[in-house]
Computed example of a mutant assay.
Amino acid sequence: MSDQPWLTDAQQRVWRQYLNLDRRLQERIERDMQQQSGMPMAYYLILAMLSEARGRSLRMNQLAEILESSQSRTSHAVSRLEEQGWVRRERSPEDGRGQVAVLTDAGWSRVQQLAPGHAGTVKRTMFAGLDDHDLGELSRIFDKISTNLGSAEPPCG
């Protein structure tokens, strides 16, 4: 990379393509999740992250970190999911001070119900038309960008 602070024409084109792609992907995924479930994508991510965690539970601060969200926003979302009976909070068994979000059996059922539709949306919007070579290249490029950010893997998918 040169010391020139400005983007080259090629970099500017790719940057704008990325911004447009990111916005459109997020909008489509959010819209489809709302249509399929009546819930925002952020709520589905909480259920999904809990479903993948050991014991289907995470400390609230860990959950906020994984979601890259504030603790207050995460707490509000968990409260809404508690109202539906999909999540419950418990005192941390480790220290008794912190709170743990736990996916209930009803929450597990909800994740199983919604996951195929979400996966279908991601496949249609992100991966349709890409072959194994394209996926390998995209993964390699994402790894390079993640390395530049100081993190090899994104916190959630």
Rank of each mutant, 00 (worst) to 15 (best):
Asp3Ala: 13
Gln4Asp: 15
Pro5Glu: 02
Leu7Ile: 01
Leu7Asn: 06
Thr8Arg: 02
Asp9Asn: 02
Ala10Thr: 09
Ala10Ser: 08
Gln12Trp: 09
Val14Tyr: 06
Gln17Leu: 14
Tyr18Arg: 11
Tyr18Lys: 06
Leu21Arg: 15
Asp22Trp: 08
Arg23Lys: 14
Arg31Thr: 14
Gln34Val: 12
Gln35Glu: 15
Ser37Gly: 14
Met39Phe: 12
Ala42Met: 06
Leu45Ser: 10
Ile46Cys: 08
Ala48Gln: 14
Leu50Phe: 06
Ser51Cys: 05
Arg54Met: 10
Arg56Met: 10
Arg56Ser: 11
Ser57Leu: 08
Leu58Met: 11
Arg59Asp: 07
Met60Ala: 01
Asn61Glu: 10
Gln62Leu: 02
Leu63Val: 01
Ala64Val: 00
Glu65Pro: 00
Ile66Lys: 14
Glu68Ile: 00
Glu68Thr: 06
Glu68Trp: 01
Ser69Gly: 02
Ser70Trp: 04
Gln71Tyr: 12
Gln71Gly: 10
Gln71Trp: 07
Ser72Gln: 09
Arg73Val: 11
Arg73Gln: 12
Arg73Pro: 00
Thr74Asp: 04
Ser75Thr: 13
Ser75His: 09
Ala77Met: 13
Ser79Asp: 15
Arg80Asn: 14
Leu81Thr: 04
Glu82Leu: 04
Gly85Phe: 06
Trp86Lys: 05
Val87His: 04
Arg88Asn: 10
Glu90Cys: 03
Arg91Gly: 07
Asp95Val: 03
Asp95Tyr: 07
Gly96Val: 08
Arg97Ile: 11
Val100Arg: 04
Val100Phe: 02
Val102Tyr: 05
Val102Gly: 02
Leu103Gly: 04
Leu103Phe: 06
Leu103Arg: 09
Thr104His: 05
Thr104Asn: 05
Thr104Met: 03
Ala106Glu: 12
Gly107Asp: 06
Ser109Ile: 04
Arg110Trp: 10
Arg110Ala: 13
Gln112Pro: 02
Gln113Ile: 00
Ala115Pro: 00
Ala119Gln: 13
Gly120Glu: 08
Gly120Trp: 01
Val122Ser: 00
Lys123Asp: 08
Lys123Gly: 03
Arg124Ser: 09
Phe127Val: 04
Ala128Gln: 12
Leu130Gln: 09
Leu130Asn: 00
Asp131Gln: 07
Asp131Ile: 05
Leu135Phe: 08
Glu137Lys: 11
Glu137Met: 15
Asp143Gly: 08
Ser146Ile: 00
Ser146Trp: 02
Thr147Met: 09
Thr147Gln: 12
Leu149Thr: 01
Gly150Asn: 01
Gly150Arg: 01
Pro154Leu: 14
Pro155Ala: 06
Cys156Tyr: 13
Cys156Arg: 15
